[in-house]
């Protein structure tokens, strides 16, 4: 497996683009005003993707000890999972 160097500016720019895109999608879904499991799933999935990249690439946890990555990504996953549970029957 190859590890990319996180310091690459191009990579940071690409991730930035992805984050902005996902934000626009989230906003768009809110704008249309749809609700329901489908929309919630998409929005929460995009939160997971965004959060993952912020933690791994912006905060620079990629390549650090496992326990730190578990802690941070675990926090993200836990919060999103709990939110999903609380929203499931609404």
């Amino acid at each position: 497996m190859t590890r990319f160097a996180i310091t690459s500016s191009t990579k940071a720019t690409l991730i930035w683009l992805l984050l902005v895109l996902l934000t626009l999608v989230t906003y768009g879904l809110g704008k249309i005003g749809y609700s329901g499991t489908f929309v919630i799933t998409i929005v929460l999935a995009s939160v997971l993707i965004k959060g993952h990249h912020i933690i791994a690439d912006f905060m620079g946890l990629r390549g650090t000890e496992k326990k730190w990555r578990w802690l941070m990504q675990g926090w993200l996953l836990l919060i999103v999972a709990v939110i999903a549970t609380a929203y499931r029957y609404s």
């Binding site: 989230t26 609700s35 929005v43 939160v47 912020i54 620079g60 993200l76 919060i79 939110i83």
Partner: peptide
């Protein structure tokens, strides 16, 4: 790096806060 890490945390929190409070229903 110390300041940057904190700033990214503020960003990360907002990433969850925005859809939670403003969007999903």
């Amino acid at each position: 790096e110390t300041g940057a890490s904190y700033w990214h945390m503020v960003d990360l929190v907002w990433i969850i806060l925005f859809p939670l409070v403003y969007i999903i229903r």
